[in-house]
Amino acid sequence: MHTEQTPHQGAHIISAKTLLATWGALMVLTGLTVAATWIDLGSDLNVVVAMVIATIKAILVALIFMHLLFDQKFNLIVFVVSVLTVVLFVSITFIDVSSYQPSIRAHESLEPNKPFLKAPAPDPASVQAQPHP
C-alpha cells in the first residue's frame, strides 16, 4: 500500500500557516472547554459538551499534526479501528456492569452504608477535629 504514492516522497509538508492556525484553534477550544464549565447545562449536557470539544481537538491533532489527512489512508484505518475497539470494549463493560446492578442494589439494601474499605474515608466533621496525619 505504500509504493503507489512515491512521486512526492510519500511526504506532505504542512505549511507554517496551517500549523499555527491549528495551534490557535486548539488554544481557542481549550478556552472554550474551560468556559463551558462555568455555564450550568445540567451535569449530563456539560459532560457531552466537554467531550464534543475534546473530540474536535483530538480530530484536529490527528488529521493535521499527525498528518492523517495527507498520509496513506491505511494509517487512518489503523487509528479509527483502535478508537472503535476502545468504544466496543467500554460498551461491553457497561453491558456487563449494568447486568449486575439489580443484585448489587439488593445486597446494598441489606447492609446500607457499609464502607468497602477497612479504613472508611472520614467525613469532614471528624476530619476537622483530627490533626493532620
Binding site: H2, T3, Q5, T6, Q9, G10, A11, D71, Q72, F74, N75, V78, F79, V81, S82, V83, T85, V86, F89
Partner: peptide, 20 residues
Amino acid sequence: AHQLNTAKLGIWLFLGQELL
C-alpha cells in the same frame, strides 16, 4: 519513501496499542 511509510505504519500500530 518506502522505508518512511513502512516505519510510520509500525508507529501507527504501536499508537493503536497505546490507545487500547
